[in-house]
Design a protein around this nucleic acid. Sequence first.
DNA 1: GCCCAGGAATGTA
DNA 2: TACATTCATGGG
Length: 294
Amino acid sequence: MRKLNNDKIKITEYKDHLCLTGLSDFDVSQIFDCGQCFRFDADITETGKKAFSGIAYGRYIRIEQPGEDKILLYNVTETDFYDIWVPFFSIDENYSIIKEDIIKRFGQNDVICEALKYGAGIRILRQEPWETLCSFIISQNNNIPRIKKIIAKLCEDYGSKINVGDNVYYKFPSPEAVAEADPDQLMKTGAGFRVKYILDAAKRVSGGQIDLSGISKYKTNQLLEVLQEIYGVGPKVASCVALFAYNRTESFPIDVWIGRVIKKYYPEGLDISSLGDFAGIAQQYLFYYERWRR
DNA sequence: GCCCAGGAATGTA
DNA sequence: TACATTCATGGG
């Protein structure tokens, strides 16, 4: 087994899964319920524990968390674990440092401290740029169940199949496959008025006008600018793509929920430029706190 | 500045 | 049960 940069994490190989212990600040439900990823579905194991399964980077994975400090990864090879799933789940990221920095920036008495406790296991996933771009175009003026439904249909209609046992899954379609799609057929995904945006994005990416790999070296401001050249991509969608696909943890998407958070807890306004390199992660804690706290 | 696209799940009264 | 809102954006 290769080494991780965190000695506390212990990895044990079993016949059909990997077991991780010592990984703190990690809650599978919170990670998949905080609205950053639309391709994973929850189910309940025989032992009554929540599990999630889905597709990322063209691969199927099933992840269970039977205890706070126990993560089980199924359908994973050792190579894929290090090359794909460690970065995908930010397993190599030390969230205690991030949380300390956020508290230092916001202050000990700030509402962020409650939010950090409430969503203690949130992690920002590192997702594929094209899938993230397309997904967040679809997410505009939309709710999570419907976003998931539209994306699932898009994958069924234009993505390639993955067989896992008796189940069939679909990869996220390539930009080429979407670019070649008939607009009327694309309407059948339920994406509605967003179809023209998805098509523009697919054509720009497959045609080479936008190089989603190349722009990863851009400074964040420049990255946001380039993304917003795409028809239907504004500041919100661009900053989500920067945060969730390009690991720009300082990128701070402002949606209706965060708008409410600012109005409610920071009536004097919030100076985002003073929030440091992890402003976007702080945003996720605030979003999750305001969205799901009863 | 305001409304609409296209649609349905979810929240709220 | 009604009724508003929903992880926005661009065009008219």
